[in-house]
Design a protein around this nucleic acid. Sequence first.
DNA 1: TTTTTTTCTTAATAAACTTGTAAGAATTAT
DNA 2: ATAATTCTTACAAGTTTATTAAGAAAAAAA
Lengths: 228, 228
Amino acid sequence: MYNILVVDDEKEITDAIEIYLRNQNYHVFKAYDGEEALEIFAKEEIHLILIDIMMPKLDGTKTTMKIRENSAVPIIFLSAKSEDMDKVLGLNIGADDYITKPFNPLELLARVNSTLRRYTSYSNTIKEKENMIKIGGIELNDTNKEVLVDGEAIKTTPIEYKILFLLMRNPNRVFSIEEIYEKVWQEPAYNPDTVTVHIRRIREKIEINPKEPKYLKVVWGIGYKFEQ
Amino acid sequence: MYNILVVDDEKEITDAIEIYLRNQNYHVFKAYDGEEALEIFAKEEIHLILIDIMMPKLDGTKTTMKIRENSAVPIIFLSAKSEDMDKVLGLNIGADDYITKPFNPLELLARVNSTLRRYTSYSNTIKEKENMIKIGGIELNDTNKEVLVDGEAIKTTPIEYKILFLLMRNPNRVFSIEEIYEKVWQEPAYNPDTVTVHIRRIREKIEINPKEPKYLKVVWGIGYKFEQ
DNA sequence: TTTTTTTCTTAATAAACTTGTAAGAATTAT
DNA sequence: ATAATTCTTACAAGTTTATTAAGAAAAAAA
């Protein structure tokens, strides 16, 4: 069962697509603008995105670029104007296919199917990319537990890596010290200093100036977050 | 095992291609401009080049002409604009194929495969190299289980060879001790020391200074990798 | 088959690195 | 100003990895 995120500001379109796809046993998530799409994408496990280029707030290309910062999920573009398509393809943001509106349901299905087939046959490929997170100049490769800072590999200890991974997998989300301890050590926290010190050590490795962190920020009285 | 040099100034593209090709057991070298490409080509044994036409410094056509001065290595051009392709083909600089961006991974693979097939049918020189892996100064010939260090043959025991082969076939990927044991012995590990000692022996044979390994590195708390 | 040689595993110790703690300094909120 | 929170540092304790050496197992040679 694949999860497909459909992003279009016209409700009739998302609804129609939902019906086509649901019939084929796909599970559909709907978003009506780019920001909403990003929220859903962060929360749900999405296997393919169908996205309109022209949208209010965050348009299709910008949304895609944001998503591409840390995912290689297949993306199919929708648009009424074929000139828009040229622009998108020129941007080289990793469009896997495109469909011009109005489209016929069979064509839509065919493309969704073929894109998914293509990607799943390369499942290792996707998996590899999906095990990578990049935010700003910091890049995590989870298969190798490797951390790159501005392209340079740095050494981290296992605990440091786990904390960094936790925070980077949920950018901008604030984790309390207790939460970090529980998630990383898998047991209830009893000394908050431990986490504090690890945070300091991570900062020393990934921040230019650990005293004025750019990524690993403290939210006073609440906890820490990795800022996107 | 073929070595493919991918030249493109857009890191996302070289990275994506690397993943596609590595999955097919090609070994990928990446360059981000023509000059870098020439350097790598001079140092490494390259069987095929994928090169972008538009690039800073030395562009794709000029780089190709330099290479063609003393090599007939197959070259496939990448470009966003098909007009550029016309120009390249008109130049008659020995383009073996071309792919317009954005390309689909399957198409890329198909062309790489067919180009290599075409070339290998001419000479058995390359075919001989198919079972060879070369990383830095270390060379494995898998047909006769031979290991060369800076061109000099060294002796390895069967287990040493298997470990080295495993790590070198997946350069930069980190394998835990358990993983190494399972893959090499084909049974679950119960004494990690065994692997540790073998690693030490391999280092003794392939490293200049086993205490400061250049190739066979440890990743603390996680495992070992062969660094490229 | 028996002997010899090579390779593999174990175990014990040493070295290197990581982690948690504690205590004082600095910062932020009340 | 005071209290609470976070930062910083250093060090001791704990882990992991490296190194040896010696005996067991396997392979090769006699």
